[in-house]
Design a protein around this nucleic acid. Sequence first.
DNA 1: TGCAATTAACTTGTATGCAAGTATAACAGA
DNA 2: TCTGTTATACTTGCATACAAGTTAATTGCA
Lengths: 141, 141
Amino acid sequence: MEKVDCIFFQLAKAYQLGNRFLTQKVSELNLTSVQAMILGFLDHEDQVTSSELGKRAELDSATLTGILDRLETAGFIERRGNPDDRRSIHIHLTKKGKSMSREAVRVIAEANTEFLQILNENEKRDLLHVIEKLRYESTRS
Amino acid sequence: MEKVDCIFFQLAKAYQLGNRFLTQKVSELNLTSVQAMILGFLDHEDQVTSSELGKRAELDSATLTGILDRLETAGFIERRGNPDDRRSIHIHLTKKGKSMSREAVRVIAEANTEFLQILNENEKRDLLHVIEKLRYESTRS
DNA sequence: TGCAATTAACTTGTATGCAAGTATAACAGA
DNA sequence: TCTGTTATACTTGCATACAAGTTAATTGCA
């Protein structure tokens, strides 16, 4: 099998490269890459339900539960009951979580810029375009 | 945080999309996507050491050990001592493993074609080019 | 109203991915 | 030869992914 021509192999390694890069950058905040992104999503969206957050972050509920567990243990979020629907919960950023989410957004933005410095404007556009097309078309099955 | 503009988010979701696609395709062989790729690498490279296989597959030795454990349990490979260097092992495809590796190569090739049908020739070239550039440049640090 | 179908969050089990550390073997230089 | 360094495979611990299944609450429809 020629790994160079295997799109699955290339996508996996590209992801792993980006993930290691971001993980290293957000480690200064003692966060993982996924935790930092979740806090980033919560920065402007307090009081969302777990289900809504899962849709935004495109994460499975099983995965999200574990991530929220760790963010709650770390004191960044609280789970609160939703009086409108007692099946669901509201996720609330604590004071500590609010300031951490702002830091996360900042570090992620910086990491994006630094990571993409390698590419010229055409390449950046191509990459985002192709990924968007793959992801969009795959929903049309 | 705008996930559309976050390259780390987009790479992660593109990878997950591809990985789910391939996983579904190779599930007919009762393999995971990674197991199928490892068998694919072994198809023409019998008797490699774990270390060499790890370099080809760009996998951590900790990760590879677990994958080899499962391939060995399933009867596709055997670990054999390397008389030339008693620290290392030779990985040997069994008869069952040989035929499975050929099936894996076939299914992966078909999955590649099907997955990339979404893109035109320019887009396929752009995607592979940009990933190659990201991966190559990142080794120059 | 009553009940089947659906939904939300969680749990369990399995498979990577990776950092960190271990034991053994090989190697390189004094 | 002796010793410090390096290399190989493995182990441990933790964090995603995700399939499958559970429980409780809500909804849709006859």
